[in-house]
Design a protein around this nucleic acid. Structure first.
Length: 744
DNA sequence: GAGCACTGC
């Protein structure tokens, strides 16, 4: 990724030496608008210079006098490189007037006025300083990406403003939202009809063509890979000079496409390995996130004279990595997306059509240095019928437990009526509340418990934090902290595409799990971590054992941070201290039970298990687990996560004893999530219920399936204010009855 | 006997 920073810098330097950045013309208007309004939206295309220039304008206009100008970015590398760039432009050293803060790296000082940071960092800082008294201005950049943290910050900033944080602050706060393609109307409305300043970018014209190879009927087929390859080859044969960027969905698809492309050209150059095949003047390069860094770097090198570079990439090339010299984009129209299904309580990784605005962004990659062309393999009908206007934001697609706990810690109890720019499904919020209640982070009244505040201190999922806290109170944190770190970094096992290498890697992993005891995937992670930490040459050890050194490095970093937090919390008088009475080899699994008892399953028929969380889903142990094939010897298991593909698989598994979870399991069923939410919405009105329901309805309508349409029809039949009221009263009745039944 | 996009604290 280092290279991507350098490449970005190169592009920025170009703008540096060219003083006619599009944004310069708008300087006065921007400063005036920022002075006159609490909220301002700046819409600027790629290359307009907004990220580096606007904070400097504000600084020169005196915005930094009453507090810092905080600028958020969704990614670490971008945060650091932009801060470096601005420090250079302002002729100061990084960390003085211009600084940055990302996790593990705070490069700011008392003198810092312009502070770049990741959105997650600002959100965390908000916990300590809810009124953001250190800042005079907050700039939320790349808002169109709709990251979870940015979305929450939208709501917080709006809410703080409504609550009159202005009175508690010495000086009013100015909020500026910057975006490339976000629905600015919607955002302006959200922030009280605030003004929008639009800055044109400096993209070259791009010709876009629909090739009609994929239509609405092919929505679920895998034909897009072969069709994309065809188009790529045609582009190579028919078009003039210029590199090609191909958007595909994942590692497997990309490797398949590379091979196909290669076979079609019918010439194999055996002098090169898989990642460096050059045929008929075409240099084929794959690019995906889990690829080793040194291989990723190769995509930035200029191809030899007379050779055309063709990069087959995942969505990583749409946001995180900028490749120079691309003139042709081939868009498959699909993306792999992790979607949370609250009904099943599962994360499902699926291949879905991209949105129209993402397609526009992809096309934009062709026009950064010269006029370009974008070939869309799908038809216009597909565009109209299958592709939504905008991407569904993270907040509607991922588990909300951590987010809800953050809000509760900020004393925002009514998490259902929090001003979300896009309101998550109520069911989704309820699921999160239930999860928080189950792990003890909130009590029956929906308030954050002491444990909940401890959980919040850790940059981990509530489940994992809970297990870590248990271990700390038992005095065996050295067992859990490494496991937590390994589980919260990217996948540590290398997945090679080539079958031979893959086999070898698989065998290596099997050996590792044998060395770690043979029947506990968590223990395998602990073993790898310890081996790596004590090895004199950790990078070499990782390479030999098929482990991502990059992932291990960040795991070592995370573990250090977790240890600091755990040690600090232990000083707190309220931190629990418990004694563990049991054999030491059971400690790890026992602690895991404290956080993961909702992820417990019992042996069912054949090699399957049934979950105990109320969904009762049938699950299978994933073949990558050390427990795979040993199902018949198991009764109760605990798992870290679920992956739905051809079956419902659980990964990272260990066996447990029923006694360990016996007292915990009832907690999974002793509360109705509505009860937790009702506390937050005592004065809920029937009108509001109708509003929520109509939101759900819009969603169904967007689904467009017959079943969904029937649902709407059915709902419309009995839709009236009085009915909504009746439904609400019924729920309230159920709730009070339930409370009555509760033993005191 | 399967096949895991991308971020962030």
């Amino acid at each position: 990724m280092e290279k991507s920073v350098r490449s970005r810098r190169r592009e920025d330097n170009e703008s540096f030496y060219n003083p006619i950045l599009p944004i310069h013309k708008w300087k006065d208007e921007l400063v005036r608008a920022a002075k006159d309004n609490s909220f301002l939206i700046v819409m600027g295309d790629t290359g307009s210079g907004k990220t580096t220039q606007l904070p400097q304008y504000l600084y020169k206009a005196g915005f930094g006098k009453n507090g810092m100008i905080g600028v958020t970015q969704p990614r670490r590398v971008a945060t650091i490189s932009v801060a470096q760039r601005v420090a250079e432009e302002m002729n100061c050293s990084l960390g003085s007037t211009v600084g940055y803060q990302v996790r593990f790296d705070d490069c700011t000082s008392e003198r810092t006025v312009i502070k770049y940071m990741t959105d997650g960092c600002l959100l965390r800082n908000t916990l300590a300083d809810p009124d953001l008294t250190k800042y005079s201005t907050i700039v939320l950049d790349e808002a169109h990406e709709r990251s979870l943290s940015t979305d929450i910050l939208f709501g917080l900033l709006k809410k703080q403003f409504q609550l009159g944080s202005r009175k508690r602050r010495k000086y009013p706060l100015t909020v500026i939202v910057m975006s490339a393609t976000l629905e600015t109307q919607k955002l302006s409305l959200f922030f009280g009809n605030c003004p929008v300043v639009t800055i044109p970018g400096k993209l070259f014209p791009i010709k876009e063509r629909f090739l009609n190879l994929i239509g609405p009927r092919d929505k679920d087929s895998t034909a897009y890979v072969t069709e994309t390859v065809k188009v790529t080859l045609q582009t190579h044969l028919n078009e003039t000079e210029g590199d090609i960027l191909v958007f595909l969905t994942g590692q497997a698809e990309i490797e398949r496409a590379c091979n196909l492309l290669f076979k079609k050209a019918e010439a194999i150059d055996y002098r090169h390995d898989l990642y460096d095949r050059s045929v008929e003047g075409l240099l084929i390069l794959p690019l995906y996130g889990s690829m080793p860094t040194d291989q990723q770097k190769r995509i930035f090198l200029a191809p030899p004279a007379g050779i055309r570079k063709c990069v087959l990439s995942t969505n990583i090339a749409a946001t995180s990595v900028t490749i120079e010299g691309i003139r042709y984009v081939v868009d498959s129209g699909f993306v792999k997306q992790l979607n949370y299904n609250p009904r099943a309580g599962l994360d499902i990784l699926e291949i879905v059509p991209i949105s129209k605005s993402e397609a526009v962004q992809r096309a934009g990659r062709a026009g950064r240095t010269a006029p370009g062309k974008c070939f869309r393999i799908y038809s216009e009908e597909f565009w109209e019928k299958c592709m939504p206007d905008h991407m569904i934001p993270d907040i509607k697609r991922t588990s909300l437990a951590s987010v809800i706990l953050t809000l509760k810690c900020l004393e925002i109890h009514d998490v259902i009526r929090f001003p979300y720019l896009d309101h998550p499904e109520e069911k989704h919020i309820l699921e999160a509340l239930k999860k928080l209640y189950q792990c003890g982070a909130i009590d029956r009244t929906g308030c954050v418990t002491k444990l909940g505040h401890f959980i919040m201190e850790f940059p981990l999922s509530p489940n994992l934090a809970c297990a870590v806290i248990k271990a700390t109170s038992f005095g065996c944190q050295e067992l859990l902290l490494p496991v937590a770190a390994m589980l919260s970094v990217e996948h540590v096992f290398i997945q090679s595409g080539e079958s031979q290498k893959q086999k070898e890697a698989g065998q290596g992993h099997e050996e590792l799990s044998q060395l770690a005891g043979g029947c506990n995937d968590f223990a395998t992670l602990l073993y790898i971590f310890e081996q790596c930490k004590t090895s004199p040459k950790p990078a070499a050890w990782c390479h030999k054992n098929g482990i991502h050194w990059r992932a291990l490095k960040s795991a070592l970093n995370v573990e250090k941070q977790l240890k600091e937090i755990a040690n600090r919390l232990k000083e707190n008088k309220d931190f629990p201290v418990e004694k563990f009475d049991g054999p030491r080899n059971e400690m790890l699994r026992h602690c895991l039970c404290a956080g993961y008892f909702s992820n417990v399953a019992r042996r069912s028929v054949g090699r399957t298990f049934r979950t105990m969380d109320g969904h009762g889903s049938i699950i299978h142990i994933h073949p990558s687990s050390a427990l795979f094939g040993k199902e018949s010897q198991l009764e109760w298991i605990l798992f870290h996560n679920v992956l739905v593909t051809s079956k419902i698989f659980v990964r990272t598994v260990c066996p447990i004893r029923y006694e360990w979870v016996k007292d915990l399991l009832p907690k999974l069923h002793d509360i109705d999530a509505y009860e937790l939410s009702n506390v937050a919405r005592e004065e809920v009105t029937a009108e509001e219920i109708l509003k929520w329901e109509s939101k759900e309805e819009t969603k169904h309508r967007n689904d467009g399936t017959e079943e969904a349409l029937n649902k709407i029809k059915k709902r419309n039949d009995d839709k009236s204010i009085s009915d909504a009221k009746a439904r609400y009263l019924q729920r309230k009745q159920q709730k009070s009855e339930m409370l009555k039944m509760e033993p005191s």
